[in-house]
Simulated assay, not measured.
Amino acid sequence: MPPEDIETQGHAGLLIGSQWSPPADPTWVAVIAHGYGEHVGRYQWVAERLTADGAVVYAHDHIGHGRSEGERVLVDDFEGVVDDLHLLVQRAHEEHPDLPLVLIGHSMGGMIAARYTQRHPETLTATVLSGPVLGSWEPTALADLDEIPPTPIDITTLSREPDVGRAYEADELVWHGDFKRPTLLALRTCLETITRGGRLTVPTIWLHGADDQLVPIDRSDEGWAHIAPDGAPSKRYPGARHEIFNETNREEVLDDVLAFVHEHIG
């Protein structure tokens, strides 16, 4: 089913999002946090898998992204983005108060999801981190330069499926420009805050493409080691690039996500 548009007044402007409903009464709730420069419309296939499993799915474009308000990809402080995500989670709980809620974050959205899980564990049943920016991220070093150079993305790093990169390149809602210094500084600060924030107390899984060149797996793994709950599961996908939800083995990845979810939603 096509999603329904939803709106939330965020910390720095109006946030536009989507809600996908399952074919029958929902049995659980999924909230998706998307990555840097993209938007929730790129998660249609993921939402279809989740709704087919009985989930009602909520997501919104972060401030400065997609259809939401704000200067493009400008984030001064990710704590405000976490606050915005909390508004969406609260809405989901208000509309489905008796259902377990799982947070799913990809890339920068994985960083946001990790920080959210540290701040608001009481709202979550489980968390899924997909190729999350954790530990340290090389692009943040650009903030120390007098002038930030152009940093066009190599679309072949997204997925082994060529159509994924072509669709990304042609997507007018995707940011195709350069990094902005305040955002890079805010990313660095958030990563440091997460590392200092202690281990997550919500069941969480870390999933990563072994050939991820955008968010290299070793740095993310180092960050994960600081926050992983005791005995938390993780999985590396050999040959997979950054967008594991859009990879050639995406069915396997979503099977793993759903298997983990069902271990915890009862």
Rank of each mutant, 00 (worst) to 15 (best):
G109N: 12
T204G: 03
Q9K: 15
S68M: 07
A143L: 03
A24K: 15
A240E: 01
V261D: 00
G135A: 06
Q44D: 05
P152Y: 05
K180E: 04
P97S: 06
H262P: 00
E192A: 14
S68V: 09
P3C: 12
R42V: 00
Y237R: 00
Q118Y: 03
A167G: 09
I104E: 02
L101K: 12
R250C: 00
L134P: 01
D61Y: 11
D230A: 11
V164K: 05
G266K: 13
D144A: 13
G54S: 03
H93R: 14
A52V: 02
P26E: 13
L14P: 00
W224N: 02
S159N: 08
L200T: 04
S18G: 08
V257F: 05
L184P: 00
Y43F: 11
Y168T: 08
I155A: 14
D230M: 05
T125H: 11
A92K: 06
I148P: 01
A141K: 15
E192C: 02
E251I: 11
Q213A: 15
V57H: 11
R241H: 13
D146C: 10
S18E: 09
N246W: 04
P121N: 14
A52Q: 12
A113T: 06
Y116L: 00
I217Y: 07
H242P: 02
G37A: 11
V102K: 09
G239R: 14
E4C: 10
R241A: 06
D53R: 15
D221S: 03
L258F: 01
W224V: 06
L254I: 15
P182L: 07
A113V: 03
H242L: 08
E247N: 02
I16G: 05
G109Q: 14
D146Y: 08
V102H: 12
T156Q: 12
A232Q: 00
Y237I: 07
H34G: 05
R72C: 12
A24R: 15
R160E: 09
R219M: 09
L74E: 08
H60I: 00
P152H: 07
A240V: 01
V133A: 07
P132A: 07
A113F: 05
R199S: 08
F179D: 03
L185R: 14
D146F: 13
E7H: 14
L88V: 14
G70K: 15
A186M: 03
H62M: 15
I265Q: 10
C190W: 00
H176W: 11
V40N: 07
S107A: 09
A24P: 04
A167E: 04
G197T: 02
H264L: 07
W45I: 10
